[in-house]
Structures are given as structure tokens and as C-alpha cells.
Design a binder for these strands. Structure first.
Lengths: 125, 125
DNA sequence: ACATGTCTACGAAAATATTCGTAACAAAAT
DNA sequence: ATTTTGTTACGAATATTTTCGTAGACATGT
């Protein structure tokens, strides 16, 4: 059961995934770069997330250290499927084409994707 | 400025994109298959969407006929980018690999994607 | 010791999204 | 004519998410 994080929760998870275990202040510092965010707002969110089991925290020192309790890949899975279903009429390949079409993938990445496809085609026989 | 539709709004848009211009009843019929949904709930949502400019409606007959006022592809764009940024650390190719990895694409689709990639590689030179 | 700064806890306000009841009216059926 | 059915409008109740103020605890510097 992967809790579907809210938007703000996802923002926080993003930081934790990227930076590793962090304090509220550290997370808030980063979030503040993007958008004015009160310290206690971030704190409260992270407390809620802890309660929901989305993150765990080490309370051994006074400043608690939080880390994600759900894997990035699981959330990716969930959100990806939701998006495919919600906006791409269930067609994953539509989504893929659209994503590639935006030209954000480098040559090396394209090459890698091609390899994956060939591998998949092989399996599928 | 693409209004970012809420989840429920997206459900409704999905129907309108798929079925074309529809009445509230028609939309509600479809939504009800998925999930218990009161008629006036759907009505209200569609009224709000009309007000926001997400849909337009033909009021010439008593039963109004609604149609989308934003293109599916634009919403796909917006949501895709948001997802890449929020859950895939900004890496579109990560998302693509993940999407393909789920094995939901048919052989023909894979082939099509491969063609696209080759075309992109050509352009990029 | 005391002031100052930093931290957690937590209730509650504010903002946003969703659901629904009821009224008014028009159309259709009896 | 009267009743039944289907429709919009719309306020308001709920639910959910986000933001913030305030209190209390602890640590640090003076």
C-alpha cells in the first residue's frame, strides 16, 4: 500500500530522496529556494508524513532527522500509472512518445532507451 | 496559460476528450461506472469548469452540451513535465525507461517508438 | 542566572476541492 | 389540468490540504 503523497509531501520527499536524511531546517532551506515557505509549515508537513508512515525520523538528538520510508521508484510507478490512465487514455506508449518528443533526452539517453526496447522485443519474442 | 485541472476535473475532461461534446448526464453516466457519483456533483463540477474556462457549453437547448476548451495534448504536456520534475528528478529518460519497463507496450508500439528515436537522433546529429 | 535563538508539538485558521440538498422551471406523460 | 421527470442554478456542508501562530523545552552565549 503506497500512500499517495500530496503535492507538498512530494516536494519534501524529493528533497529527502536527493539529499538523503535531513532535518526540517535543511529541507525547508531547499524548499524556500523555490517558493516562500514558513519553517513551521514544513515542520508540520513532515510531522504529518511521519504519522502517515511516509517518512521515518530519528529522534535521538534534539533536532530530528527524517528519511523517506517509501521508495522513489514505487512512487514513480504509482504516479506514472495514474498519469497514463488519467491523461493518456491508458496508453503508455503515447506518453513515452510525448516525453521523447520534447527533445530533453540526450543522444546517450536515446541510445540507452533503444537498447532497452531491443531487449524488450527480444523477450517478447 | 493552461489551467491545471484538479483530479475530478481531469476525470471529466477525459470523458469529453474521448466521447466528444456531451451533456452532464452522459458524463455522469460514464463516471458512475467507475465510482458512485451524484448527478448534481458532476453538474456542479462542470459548471465550475465552464466558469474557469476549462470547458465551453452550448446553452441553446435546455440540456446544455459541454465540450473541452483545452487540448488534451496541452494537459499531457503540463502534467508530464510536472511529473518528470516532481518524481523523476527532472530526467525524462528515466520516466521513459520506467514506463517501458512495465511491459505494457506492444511490439508494434515499441517499433514505433524506436523509429521516433532514430528520427530524433538524426535531427540531433 | 538570564537572555537569545532554535527546536518540537499542536491547535486552528485559511485555502482548496468535493459532495449534496433544494428550489425553480420546463418538458413530457397521464 | 395535473403529475411526473429531467434539467439548471446555487448555497452550503464536508473533506482535504496547506499555512501559521503560539507555547514549551532545550541549548548556547553573555
Amino acid at each position: 500500500m503506497t500512500h499517495k503523497p500530496t503535492e507538498s509531501e512530494l516536494d519534501i520527499l524529493k528533497v529527502l530522496w536527493e539529499k538523503g536524511p535531513s532535518t526540517v531546517r535543511e529541507v525547508n532551506e531547499i524548499l524556500s529556494q523555490e517558493k516562500e515557505t514558513g519553517y513551521t509549515t514544513t515542520l508540520k508537513l513532515m510531522q504529518i508524513m511521519a504519522q502517515k508512515g511516509i517518512v521515518t525520523r530519528d529522534e535521538s538528538s534534539r533536532t530530528h532527522v527524517y528519511k523517506p520510508a517509501i521508495e522513489q521508484i514505487n512512487v514513480q510507478h504509482t504516479l506514472l500509472n495514474k498519469l497514463v490512465d488519467a491523461a493518456f487514455s491508458g496508453s503508455a506508449s503515447q506518453l513515452v512518445m510525448q516525453a521523447l518528443g520534447q527533445g530533453k533526452a540526450s543522444k546517450a539517453e536515446l541510445e540507452e532507451i533503444k537498447k532497452l526496447i531491443e531487449q524488450l522485443e527480444g523477450e517478447q519474442k
